[in-house]
């Protein structure tokens, strides 16, 4: 299935007022994120967090950058889906122009993106941004 857009995600999350529903939504997003083939989950694609692992494989479709991402933790997969809504199948210029910090603060999920959480997400975002910059 295709993931919702960033605008849809922000609207969806605003709709829930208790934490359980918000998390269930993120867990469901995590479940709907296409899995990476196990043979792709090599050291080369690994972004190691101390609590969970994240893998990333970049690709391209015409002038758009594509990414296959995965994590061993379902909530991190959900958070990755939020990142993919912003970055996957976008041009390098789109990725560069997108204000990811504002997006996350609108999602009100900063706590899970703090580097101390060791979930690898910050590194993934940094890596995608670096790839987009290099592709400009």
């Amino acid at each position: 299935m295709s993931l919702p857009s960033t605008t849809e995600i922000i609207e969806d999350l605003e709709f829930f007022d208790d934490w359980e529903d918000r998390y269930k939504y993120i867990i469901d997003l995590g479940k709907s994120l296409p899995a990476m083939d196990d043979e792709l989950k090599t050291e080369l694609r690994l972004v190691k967090g101390c609590q969970s692992s994240v893998w990333i494989e970049p690709g391209e479709a015409g002038d758009r950058m594509t990414f296959i991402v995965d994590s061993d933790a379902i909530i991190v997969r959900g958070l990755l889906a939020l990142v993919m809504a912003a970055y996957d199948n976008k041009t390098a210029a789109d990725i560069n122009a997108f204000d990811i910090d504002a997006y996350f603060s609108e999602l009100d999920l900063e706590r899970h993106l703090s580097p101390t959480r060791g979930n690898g997400l910050k590194s993934i975002v940094a890596r995608i941004q670096a790839m987009a910059k290099a592709a400009l």
Partner: peptide, 8 residues
């Protein structure tokens, strides 16, 4: 779930 999910 993964330990990280449990922790979250």
């Amino acid at each position: 779930g993964h330990p990280a999910d449990i922790g979250f």
